[in-house]
């Protein structure tokens, strides 16, 4: 066991982890964050994506022990007290069906809009290409991101 100190959704947390524990397992089992989902456990599906220092990362592919001192944001942190413009757009467009991929998609889309507030369709597709969704055919997800980007001031 080793002690790791990190910032999770703006709170400082200190936890004991085994060197072999992935960030995904530690977030879900030791830190109470259930929004990152396990879909493949090998980085293919993107359902476990979280933001580490603002960058989208698959939490199944890194060890928790590597996260010393880092700022981690999960969907719980994005939701906070008020949903984001992006989340409201996802509701408006019925962007998700089963919802299992939603946390990862929202993380990727949040990262995209932060670095590129007004992406075109191709840029949106590129940004989401690592998030698998089996239900929607992606179109309603694109529509919501385009709408949210329009609502963000130039």
């Amino acid at each position: 066991m080793a002690k790791v100190k990190l910032t999770l959704n703006n709170e400082t947390r200190t936890i004991d982890v085994e060197p072999c524990e992935t960030l995904l397992d530690v977030l879900r089992d030791k830190l109470g964050m259930k929004s990152p989902k396990c879909g493949c456990d090998r980085g293919d599906c993107g359902a476990c994506a979280v933001l580490i220092d603002g960058k989208s990362v698959r939490s199944c592919l890194i060890f928790a022990i590597e996260c010393e001192g880092q700022h981690i944001t999960t969907l719980e942190g994005i939701s906070g007290d008020q949903l984001s413009i992006l989340q409201e757009a996802f509701i408006e467009f019925n962007s998700f069906q089963c919802g299992y991929c939603a946390p990862g998609v929202i993380i990727s889309a949040t990262e995209l809009l932060k670095s590129n507030p007004h992406p075109n369709l191709e840029e949106i597709k590129e940004a989401l290409s690592g998030n698998l969704c089996r239900c929607t055919g992606y179109q309603p997800i694109f529509d919501a991101i385009l709408k949210a980007s329009k609502e963000t001031k130039k």
Partner: peptide, 13 residues
């Protein structure tokens, strides 16, 4: 809009 939309996009589901 879906009545389960808010749950699913907030991570609450």
């Amino acid at each position: 809009t879906r009545i389960d939309g808010r749950e699913k996009i907030s991570g609450a589901a």
